[in-house]
């Protein structure tokens, strides 16, 4: 418990340092664009692939559940849409990104710490917490919601390809479901989740990497902790957001 409080306190203080005013905006901007490319373009394919299967599995599972029931058939499109938008696209995508991007960020910063790059920047007078975290965070806050949005769209298409060409449902039924009971508020909830999850996966992973001590084993541990803690916190915050936004 003491250790947990210690890390929480250090994380909060470190965030305070990371949100200081940049020394030179141009340098931060250049780094932000690089990170947007890394996080965004670098994760597009994997997000696309998992999203297709998220949609497909949701559609197939729902079709299986509704067999023999009196639930209207067009509900399949409605369920895939809302499940994807509210829960699956933001949570699955961000948990995947915590694994891919989070471990990458922790390893990058940990490697910089071990090779004394961070010390070198400190000596130059650079606010390393700000320079190393702000561009990554801004990039993630911009790019992750976009990825989640793209993921949700692909999921809905994935659901369609799983149940319409196979003959389980007609094109009309699926599309009617997609157009039924649409609540724009759900899209707002998806973006809120995407922002919060992006913040968590970036800052937690950077924190783990920034304070690495020791050698390659410790670096590996930091990378693992980044993924595990990010995922736990994503799920916890998912629950809290759901409680707040649906009550």
């Amino acid at each position: 418990m003491t250790k947990l409080l210690y890390h929480f306190g250090r994380y909060v203080l470190w965030l305070g340092q990371a949100f200081r005013k940049p020394e030179r905006m141009g340098m931060y901007w250049k780094e932000t664009l690089r990170q947007m490319n890394n996080i965004g373009i670098g994760s597009l394919i994997i997000i696309g692939v998992i999203s297709v299967f998220i949609g497909a599995v949701t559609a197939v599972q729902f079709a299986y559940q509704m067999e023999g029931s009196i639930i209207p058939r067009y509900y399949v499109g409605y369920v895939v849409r809302d499940m994807t938008i509210i829960e699956l696209a933001p949570t699955f995508s961000c948990m995947l990104l915590a694994g891919k991007v989070g471990s990458n960020l922790a390893t990058e910063l940990g490697g910089m710490r071990q090779k004394e790059h961070i010390d070198a920047m400190e000596i130059m007078g650079v606010n390393t917490a700000a320079y190393l975290v702000q561009p990554k965070l801004i990039a993630a806050l911009v790019v992750v919601p976009m990825l989640v949005c793209i993921g949700a769209f692909i999921s809905i298409i994935g659901g369609y390809t799983a149940v319409v060409p196979t003959g389980w449902f007609s094109h009309g039924e699926y599309i009617q479901g997609l157009r039924s009971f649409f609540e724009p508020y759900n899209v707002w909830m998806m973006f809120v989740k995407a922002f919060v999850f992006a913040f968590i996966l970036t800052t937690v992973s950077c924190y783990q990497g920034y304070f690495v001590k020791g050698g390659s084993i410790e670096l590996g541990d930091a990378s693992t902790r980044a993924v595990v803690f990010s995922n736990i916190l994503i799920l916890l915050s998912d629950y809290i957001i759901a409680m707040i936004m649906t009550s």
Partner: peptide, 19 residues
């Protein structure tokens, strides 16, 4: 401290060049 550090140059054991 940051202002003072701008007057400091440091050569690290492993050079610490950004790869």
């Amino acid at each position: 401290l940051r202002e003072l550090r701008m007057q400091i140059g440091m050569l690290f054991q492993g050079s610490a060049l950004f790869d």
